[in-house]
Design a binder for these strands. Sequence first.
DNA 1: TGAATATATGAGCAGATGTTCATAAGTCTA
DNA 2: TAGACTTATGAACATCTGCTCATATATTCA
Lengths: 125, 125
Amino acid sequence: MIDAPLCDIHLVHEDAVAAASEGRSAEALVVRLADIFQLLASPTRLRIVEALAVRELCVCDLAAVVGVSQSAVSHQLRQMRQMRLVRYRREGRMAFYRLDDPCIETLFSTGLEHVREMDYREEPP
Amino acid sequence: MIDAPLCDIHLVHEDAVAAASEGRSAEALVVRLADIFQLLASPTRLRIVEALAVRELCVCDLAAVVGVSQSAVSHQLRQMRQMRLVRYRREGRMAFYRLDDPCIETLFSTGLEHVREMDYREEPP
DNA sequence: TGAATATATGAGCAGATGTTCATAAGTCTA
DNA sequence: TAGACTTATGAACATCTGCTCATATATTCA
């Protein structure tokens, strides 16, 4: 499955490289996964996810909860919309957003639980 | 728990904002979590995680598996080391890296499973 | 209709990111 | 010890990110 070495350095352990390359996922999947993690890689967007995990919210309320400007929230929501992480319903002039991807909540809560544990471990009471 | 509205816009639904603000995590935790997701937000680093999930590897082999230069891998490993995502042991002139944080594998595999499912759903055979 | 409100978006900018290139530091072997 | 090898790192650079500001779009209400 392995063709030529990918870098110009001497290939030290061919068997190790072969084994580790065995389960290599498709490039498109890895890129897509990186995009999802990228969307979770910002305190502002994590706040948005955390808030929307509780209940749906309009943009204005979301801005208040997250603590940034309406414009900033709206820009972020557009990205999250394009990645199908959130969706919204119109009600008059307002737009109520909610999470559209149950996996996001899983990743968020898994990660949060983890950093909480690390916090306790590093700073005992 | 809510003091003044955080943005200059009219606060539309005070109860909604209060409810969504209820479970707000500490700022430090959210920032730390964003940092962890940030480390997973790059195809190169995801490849590193994927490879190290199989077995420990030296830098040179890792470069071959991931498909980038030794220098690029080494720079990325430094970041991951600083975040305690990986650690290494020295053996002569080589450094063998392994994952140091079981949570990373969980987040990686959870996310990967998800994008795989999405892939099947969007492009039926 | 006109003013107020809610949201969306384009431009622009400062700062962060990921790579390459050159090179340093440390280890092995002849 | 000299040369080959493995890894680490600083500098430089192009690109990406997340915000602000100004403004457009759309809806509601007097």
